[in-house]
């Protein structure tokens, strides 16, 4: 029977180990093994799916955000106009507002370039521009657009500060020189409440809105999204990367990646994302190159787990 053959002799170096084709063989049914494995894994998957199901927490809508935390929407709108939100101060790939992160001085984020330009002010102004039948809002928009950049910045920053002093409650804000900013912020809250904000941000001017970049950036500039995630134990400093909502299984394979975010120096670094990524790439490379790294590749010889794997063989073929 010609089922077992030696590979053609050739460029092989003088052998220090015997190879698989030199050993006696036993019957082994690979196809049967695969079919049984497939049946077992299918049944196991179906059983786990039936018993434990999977999470389906509804996505946060802008209307839900406005309903649950209207003051957060107002503060976020004011922040976008003042240029103080996360997205407004982000840098690449959205704008030039910051240098971005670097690894060992290499500005990878900047090198990526501003390829997805997002104007934070437009996250507020563009949805408002589509509102009809609200003369006060139209006038506020006109006032904003007719003003200098410095004046806009001064109004918006003053309102952001005033909101801060009032504990985030627009009703308690002291009078000040805010220009049209309170009206614009209230206008965005109104659009959000109506359920029209997502559409205005993702599909205005294009029938097929498949890109949620601007919606997610606006939502993430507020506090509501993160607060909701932290309440679910999904925060970055809660090992959130490997967690899932409720008691559903998460991504246990992310344990090492998320671990680094929990410890210094990464937990306090402004460049943590880039640094942790670089460290994980290095560790992945080490894992990949284990066969070539003296010491690392010898660990299995020093800790003889293989004596268990091949105990039957070692018993029958004691070392000579």
């Amino acid at each position: 029977m010609a089922t077992v053959t030696r590979p053609a002799a050739g460029r092989r170096a003088p052998r220090t180990e015997w190879d698989s084709h030199d050993f006696p063989t036993r019957h082994y049914d690979l196809v049967k093994e695969f079919v049984i494995a497939l049946v077992v894994m299918t049944l196991l998957t179906a059983a786990l799916a039936a018993i434990f199901s999977s999470p389906d927490d509804k996505a946060i809508t802008m209307a839900r955000w406005a309903q649950a935390d209207p003051n957060d929407v107002i503060a976020t709108a004011a922040g976008e106009l003042a240029g103080t939100t996360t997205s407004a101060t982000y840098g690449a790939p959205y704008n030039h507002a910051a240098e971005g992160q670097s690894v060992l001085g290499v500005p990878l984020q900047k090198w990526g370039g501003v390829r997805i330009p997002v104007s934070s002010q437009d996250l507020v102004l563009q949805p408002l521009a589509g509102v009809r039948g609200d003369p006060a809002l139209s006038q506020a928009l006109g006032t904003w657009r007719g003003s200098t950049t410095d004046q806009q910045k001064s109004w918006a920053s003053a309102y952001v500060d005033a909101l801060d002093k009032a504990g985030g409650d627009p009703a308690k804000v002291a009078t000040g020189d805010f220009g049209p900013v309170p009206a614009l912020a209230a206008g965005l809250l109104s659009v959000a409440r109506s359920g029209a904000l997502e559409g205005a941000l993702t599909s205005a001017g294009t029938f097929y809105g498949g890109d949620q970049t601007r919606s997610v950036l606006l939502l993430a500039d507020g506090a509501y999204l993160e607060d909701t995630a932290v309440a679910q134990h999904l925060g970055g400093d809660q090992w959130g990367m490997m967690n899932e909502v409720g008691n559903y299984p998460g991504q246990p394979w992310m344990w090492l990646y998320t671990f680094w975010y929990q410890v210094k120096p990464f937990s306090t670094s402004d460049n943590a994302d880039a640094e942790v990524w670089a460290l994980m790439m290095l560790l992945t490379l080490l894992l990949m190159l284990v066969p070539f790294i003296p010491g690392l590749r010898d660990v299995p010889r020093w800790i003889p787990v293989h004596r268990l794997v091949w105990r039957d063989y070692y018993r029958r073929h004691p070392r000579t």
Partner: peptide, 13 residues
Amino acid sequence: MTPGLVVLAGRYL
């Protein structure tokens, strides 16, 4: 923390 959050985290060690 935002008021009105009704979500609950699972059990954690």
